[in-house]
Nucleic acid binder design. Sequence first.
DNA 1: TGTCACTTAAACATCC
DNA 2: GGGATGTTTAAGTGAC
Length: 634
Amino acid sequence: MMVESASETIRTTPSNQNGISSLSSQSDGGGGREGGSKGDTNGEISPVDLLHLQQQQALQAARQFLLQQASGLNSPGNELKQSPVQVPVSMAMMSPQMITPQQMQQILSPPQLQALLQQQQALMLQQQLGTKQLAFQQQLIQMQQLQQQHILNLQRQGLVPLQPTATMQSLQQAMCPSDLQQLWKEVSGVQSSEEALKQAEGLDLSTNSSNSTSVFPKAASTHIALHSLANGQSHTPKRDSHEEHASSHPLYGHGECKWPGCEALCEDMGQFIKHLNNEHALDDRSTAQCRVQMQVVQQLEIQLAKESERLQAMMAHLHMRPSEPKPFNQPVNGGSSWSQISSRDSEAYPEGLPHPPTSAATPITPLRQGPSVISSSSLHTHSHSHTHGVGPIRRRNSDKYCTPIASELAQNCEFYKNADVRPPFTYASLIRHAILESPDRQLTLNEIYNWFTRKFAYFRRNTATWKNAVRHNLSLHKCFVRVENVKGAVWTVDEVEYQKRRPPKMTGSPTLVKNMISGLGFGSLNASYQAALAESSLSLLNSPSLLTSPASLNMLHVGHDDVSSTVEQVNSNGSCSPTLSPQQYSHQVHVKEEPTELEEDSRPVSLLAGVTHSLPLPSDERDLEEDLPTEELE
DNA sequence: TGTCACTTAAACATCC
DNA sequence: GGGATGTTTAAGTGAC
């Protein structure tokens, strides 16, 4: 469909303003309608050829414009900048000389026509200023650039299908400023025709719906498509636009005229049309209102672009490689988005392999505020979580392979403190971290509670729920050992049991480990990972006993639940220093005194065991390095 | 499809 | 008795 529209693109020579006229030679006396159709069906020029030609023309236009700019012709005039009317491309392709006022108005719906006429008025003002055409062209180019940029933004976000957008861009490229200017000049001769306007308004509805083969509806729909693009609703097929337009009117709804500030009651469409023609005919007031509306739309589009860009940056920061624009096919709210994101991420990484934490590819910057942990797998957690209303903390993968809780918390401490975001870790992981973070490696239940509420804003509500879960986890998991001491009952972590708790998915398979290594080889390394590496390496270097322990080597490739057993030691003093350097981390190591016990001895020696002490390690190896249990580092 | 891990909810017991 | 703490069971969900 869009190819058809492309085929309707004006074939102009940018260097002259007769370019549009040249197109008229293709149009028969019936007007652009047949002319456009002819372009579709004559078969002499394929759409691809047309696109190529358009690109060449656009380049020519750009060159000419640059030459004109170089000649010193420039002028201010930002008036038009405020009103980027999106001229229907198909209309722009037609020869103005061949377009009668009636035809012109058939092409456009009243709002479109109003907008176009408003542009004409602006153009006339420009012309009245004398030698400001080039400035106008410049504005047009800027408008086109802005529009293209906006479309690109939408495209990146998945709001706009790629092909139609590309087509539109090519169409825009094919419209050199002089063409548009000439077009508007021609159109300016139309606007005085009140009768034609009425006719256009009257035909607007019928034309779009009745003549599906006409180029004029295509033109109108192209314009609609442009608006749709701008509104991020480009998925509406062109036909739908026609159908919708046939049964309704953008300015008519709920029996009211939707013209800004009007709200006149109209019983039916006919009455509305009459009202529209009478009350909102082309005059200064309507033009001014249209101009205002255009500015409103423009501001909204700008705002949309900004918000979209912000969203993109947020999403990229939270779970994706920062430099890679991500499509946003769905709004980001609720669990669905997380699952969508996660599924998207899943596609980006080798299947069955642990996904690298986002932070692994996200440079640590002071601007970092979001949780890098909300990586692919952790997002499953949120998806899952919403099925429960409150939501589970996380799914297994994030814990086991991807998201070291300590590094994550270290990086995003403030974020979790202030944002009501559920941390993507299991209760068990958090409890363990809380306990290991304590100076004595033991906490009372109440202290665990306090740790949760202190570290996570999320746990400052629904206290009954999560506290119950905490207690449940403490009792359920053997890794949590209740110890009676002078303070009463305190909870400690049996790291061995904690390790046992994990399924040996990532163990015993060198191939799997290798795949994981390759799968983790994304981008640059997270500072926290480097810190973890430095910490763990330092710990190992400082722990001769462990270095001689086969178990310590074996544990290197253990698919650790939350990978944090090593990294969690990084910040075990409870400090909150998201931007700590690896050295800082290293000095903050708080090793846990846990009995070293050989477990899972049958696991093959990690491929990484031999490089444990060398710095720097590749990211993948470092990631595995984090699988080191705490006790192995001592 | 079954198993497992996890979350949530709830009931119940014990202790202070 | 009430709250905190601790244990246990059950149901639901997603991943594997």
